[in-house]
Design a protein around this nucleic acid. Sequence first.
RNA 1: GGGCCGGUAGCUCAGCUGGUAGAGCACUGCCCUUUUAAGGCAGGUGUCGCGAGUUCGAAUCUCGCCCGGCUCACCA
Length: 493
Amino acid sequence: MEELNELLQQRRKKLEDLKTSGIDPYPNKFTVTASSADIRKQYGHLTPGSEDKTCSLVVAGRIMTMRLMGKACFAHIKDAAGRIQIYVKKDVIGEQEYEVFKTLDMGDIIGVKGSVFCTRTGEITLHVDQVTLLSKALRPLPEKWHGLTDIETRYRQRYVDLIANDEVAGIFRLRSKVIKTMREYLDSRNFLEVETPMMQSIPGGAAAKPFCTHHNALDIDLFLRIAPELYLKRLIVGGLERVYEVNRNFRNEGISTRHNPEFTMIELYQAYADYNQVLELCREMITLVVKECLGKLETEYNGNIIQFDGDWKRLTLIGAIKEYAEVDFSVPKTLEETKKIASDLQVEFDPNTSHNKIISCIFEQCVEKKLIQPTFICDYPVELSPLAKNSKSNPEMVERFELFIGGQELANAYSELNDPIEQRKRMEQQLKEREKGDEEAQLMDEDFIRALEYGMPPTGGLGIGIDRLVIILTNSPSIRDVILFPQMRPENV
RNA sequence: GGGCCGGUAGCUCAGCUGGUAGAGCACUGCCCUUUUAAGGCAGGUGUCGCGAGUUCGAAUCUCGCCCGGCUCACCA
């Protein structure tokens, strides 16, 4: 327990005084009949100076400001819907009640009953005839004018951030609406929402380092999932045909403005579809989300106006490199030539790596950040996509696309590999990569192969990074601004 | 993990060519019945992130550590 400073001691003293005078500072329940927004909306017609004495409404919220003027007081209280001004007069609520009211602090949560009037300056205000303390606050609120700006405190004590900075709740309401809209879209198209294991004995479905944990009763190591992909595809084998999961993924990697160790994706799989149909679904769903959440099809992100209407640009991986890095890989190159090109472009790469991986490095370092408007990049080398199906026209390539917006990868999709023998070969190849030192190469999952052996229909799959989509829609500088409790080093409280 | 920047009152910040800590808001007391960053008068704020060192003297200079931000690397 920390030593209490003067401000905290004062609040505790007030708490004791309230108890002594028979007032319960933490009552069990309170019946509210209106929200701040209800009142502002319902009585918005009142003209300055006029009052509707016939109504009697009950609102509850946190005291955010107080302007005490002797025998009367204006204050603002904040509820989930916003803020509303209240006006408390001694001769209306009674002398004793007013004495108690005067001792209340900013941050206390109160319930108030009264009628509605409009002040001289035109603000809809509740004319209070009864005040009930609902929760005594023992800590002072951040300053009313600057609010809470310290980034560390905002992330560590999100509750204070939400109290002090009104716009923060809006980001998380929007985030919720993004997911809700996606659910509605998919549900209406006969997708089934499912839940698959968070703890997996073989972490698969992505190239990433997992978190490890241990199950005591089974005495086995388990891994927090890096992706639900292999489980969702087992469900396609099982005949569910259209499934999706709003999924938390865990990756034991660096933390940055674009990376949190746990992050949210939506993954969906549609039987009898290929990546072209999934591309159309992806575009349609994101367009709907943007429209529902922003009310328009454009938004400013990081200094650029991003347009979501119309057709989205579609390039091949090689085509995009040609357009943005001005290197043409459509004519075959030797490994040495490729390395030379990468070096000339000042692209960093592992000197022992392959042709395709260097191409991928060139794309990531020279092209990705230039893809501001929604752009689909299609057709990736097999080597980089161990779970995707080969292109019929070019077996070296797979039917895969990634979506880029605002210079970031937002979605990844492919025609799912459903040939169990080919899948086994690919996983064996991944194991070799792993032996060569690639910690992120995928593992053999015998049960997944067995599932494919029962027969998986041709299937298109898609994953969309929810956090990144919300970053773009809210023009947030960091992923931590769109995750309520981003990962931080523990503090000593 | 590397580089750069930061941590001073509850909050937002100033003080940093070394001389023993300040403002606004918040808080306490008094006045004030349509204010809205309400106003007026009076008052107390503190391990200056932590620990060493240099010095007569350190918030200030040096070193180490902790926490955070940005950025690079890894990645979605």
